[in-house]
Design a protein around this nucleic acid. Sequence first.
DNA 1: TCCTATTTGATATAATTTTATCGATTGGAG
DNA 2: CTCCAATCGATAAAATTATATCAAATAGGA
Lengths: 219, 219
Amino acid sequence: MENRTCSLQTLRRLPYYLYYLRNSNEEYCSATTIARDFRLNEVQVRKDLAIVSKTGGSPRKGFNVQELISDLEDFLGYNNMNDAIIVGVGHLGKALINYKGFQDYGINIVMGFDRAIKTEMLIGSTAIFPMERMKNLVQRLKIKLGIITVNQGSAQRVCNQMIDAGIKAIWNFSPYMLRVPEDVLVQNENMAMSLAILSKHLNEEIDHEHQPIIMNAED
Amino acid sequence: MENRTCSLQTLRRLPYYLYYLRNSNEEYCSATTIARDFRLNEVQVRKDLAIVSKTGGSPRKGFNVQELISDLEDFLGYNNMNDAIIVGVGHLGKALINYKGFQDYGINIVMGFDRAIKTEMLIGSTAIFPMERMKNLVQRLKIKLGIITVNQGSAQRVCNQMIDAGIKAIWNFSPYMLRVPEDVLVQNENMAMSLAILSKHLNEEIDHEHQPIIMNAED
DNA sequence: TCCTATTTGATATAATTTTATCGATTGGAG
DNA sequence: CTCCAATCGATAAAATTATATCAAATAGGA
């Protein structure tokens, strides 16, 4: 409960703890238990929890589950809902728009855009607009998060438009490595990375002794 | 060109280099250039390439692009095609079955299974079978890679069935943390992790000075 | 009530990963 | 032909991340 700075590696593990706790029926939960279930080092989990937990845990009992959930949500910012736009409403775009689970993570897809759309339409309850209206809408609503689900050839152009409109974080589902200014964060949803790790395992050339569960894809 | 063991972090970067090179028109490509474009440290890229490159690069020119692509593919095992099965043919399952891009990564989805399927059917050119036939087919075809696209409640059961049938690597798209024996690798496709990183960035509490591009979900 | 086993938080050590530095090689310009 | 700049590969240093160890706290049982 001392070090309040969070390493990227820790940040990657936190959502897993949160998910785990949300599915727990217990009143208390110890770092020891979590470590065992995730096959992580016990001290590692304890340090991770120390960063987010406001009240700390009690010896012999561990952490209060509800409290810890709430601390995790606070820390990860899932309580201040982040509005997001999505560009590209093909198969994947539609799936994401209809996916309810984002609410749990503080993400709210407020509207979509697509080059092929010429007049406003609805997908579920989400409005989809022509690309031309993006900049104005994003600026007026002060939206900072953009999701890219267009194809490779359009990704950089869409990305530039987003940045021009004031977007500061981009979740990129296109198989394209976007170039962005320093202050914009790109998070790639990288199936290729996952595949590389699986493929290497299957070809049994890497030693996974120390990586019994790879939590991230990525990472 | 000395150290041949590959760290997990390096392994995560390799698919990006491969993708980048495949899209290059140049004959030669230097570690310096790649590092600049990905905003990575030059030495890091050079060390990564040293692990995979068989012939090494030439001073002043860099690496032969075609040769490096081929070395990367060899290293990642994309040349020995890995057959895979997929369990769960809902929206996501169907999308993955129809996705052509896996071929580039050495993955070949040979058949699918679903609890709701009672008699064999086709999706595109891929046969879908009832769950009951999985063990027998997987064993006969000696398939080692399984893709899980079922919902949370069924994931562990499907996972157990896969392991029982001899699957050694699992690509898990369900939002469930699977428990597996030591010798089985689980790769989670972890949108939650990506979301955590984005959300934290938007709430501006983490210092990304040293992480201009997070390559993986992730990296 | 006292003892014991478990868990916490803190400190210290180890391992891994990244970054800096340097001499050697080579293609191209002058 | 000689020099220069770019790049390589290697070694060393720094930074980050993971793991081990230990005293203090406490719940629960003897």
